Amino acid sequence: MKREKKLKNPVASFIIVTNLMFWPLFCLVGAAKMLEFPEWVFQLMLTISAWSSTFAFTVLFKRIYPEQRFAAFVKDAFKCKLKWSVLAMSSFIQISIFGMIMLVVVVNHKPDSIFTISTWGMLIYYFVKNLLSGPLGEELGWRAFALMELQKKHSPLAASIIIGFWWGLWHLPIWLTTGYVGMELIQYVLFFMLSIMSTSIIMTACYNFNRNLIVPIVIHQFFNFFVGLINEKLVVLITYNAFFYVAAAMLIIVINPKKVMYGKKEAKSVVRPIP
């Protein structure tokens, strides 16, 4: 069997292909909305578009790891025993941020209702929908592959910032659907990127403590889920989110900078050959 030629810059190739896949898929999401397709069709297309990074990584896999099986790579991403202390720490950080944002919104904006969802049934539906249309579809490519590859050449902090920037920029088509223009759009994009990049730092720190992909999936899930629960303008929520997530990321760096963010570069992953 002829082997694929190995990519010289796999992370850059991954980012390019991810965007090339996401843009047309997201256009189909927009078409489904404009043509007034049933809601389930719109939600299905939205979920599929969110998996573009996984699709891109799957397509490129044999050019990145020609000696390894895709199924083995996915299995390895979840094989480390889950450390509940790491999950508890990351969850505590995000629940605390959620509580502080709610307090700020109640005090400064006095909404009629603090929550966007009022029934347990809708809450469960929103939780599952959010999980399928973001965290499950994005983390295999962005964290299990791209972050780990970057840490072979860069410190965890540098790798976090690089991934956070490109992961945030990948959302560009979504920014154009917010309805914001002018200064509001600039504010939204600026604080969105700060939120994403600081969350990327938190993800890297927690993921390096416990190399199980469930960890970044849970962090990603809480990030999206909590924002959608609070009844306030999205641009306002993203602004508060950025402030608190940047503070949390800086705190993590200050607490243990040498071990968490400036540790040794990742050793090259062991390739599992195809029998």
Rank of each mutant, 00 (worst) to 15 (best):
E4K: 07
K6P: 00
P10W: 01
A12M: 02
A12G: 08
I16W: 05
I16A: 10
T18Y: 05
L20G: 12
M21G: 07
M21C: 15
F22K: 06
C27G: 15
V29K: 03
P38W: 05
P38H: 04
E39A: 03
E39Q: 12
Q43Y: 10
Q43H: 06
L46S: 09
S49T: 13
A50I: 00
S52G: 09
S52E: 00
T54K: 03
V59K: 01
V59F: 00
L60C: 02
I64C: 14
Q68C: 08
Q68L: 11
A77S: 15
K79F: 11
K81L: 12
W84I: 13
S85A: 06
L87H: 11
M89W: 05
S90N: 01
S91A: 09
S91K: 04
F92I: 08
F92V: 05
I95N: 06
G99K: 02
V104F: 06
V106T: 05
N108S: 01
D112N: 09
D112E: 08
S113A: 11
F115S: 10
F115D: 10
T116K: 08
I117T: 06
S118W: 05
Y125V: 15
F127E: 12
K129R: 06
N130K: 02
N130V: 03
L136R: 00
W142N: 06
A146R: 03
E149Q: 12
L150D: 12
L150P: 06
K152H: 10
S155G: 00
P156W: 03
P156N: 01
L157N: 09
S160E: 06
I161G: 08
I161H: 09
I161F: 14
W166N: 12
W167I: 04
W167Q: 09
W167N: 09
L169M: 10
H171K: 05
I174K: 00
I174M: 03
Y180L: 06
V181C: 02
M183W: 05
I186P: 02
Y188A: 06
L190I: 12
F192V: 12
M193D: 10
M197V: 08
S200T: 11
T204K: 01
T204H: 00
A205L: 00
C206D: 05
Y207E: 04
Y207V: 07
N210C: 13
R211W: 14
I214N: 11
I217Q: 04
I217D: 00
V218T: 13
I219A: 06
H220P: 06
Q221D: 10
F222M: 13
F223T: 08
N224A: 03
F226P: 07
G228I: 10
L229F: 10
L229Y: 10
V235C: 01
V236F: 03
V236A: 02
L237A: 00
L237E: 03
L237W: 04
I238Q: 00
Y240W: 08
N241S: 11
V246M: 15
V246C: 13
A248Y: 01
A248W: 07
V254I: 15
V254T: 14
N256Y: 12
N256K: 15
P257S: 15
P257V: 15
K259W: 11
Y262C: 13
G263S: 12
G263K: 10
K265E: 14
A267K: 04
A267Y: 03
A267D: 08
S269D: 13
P275N: 02
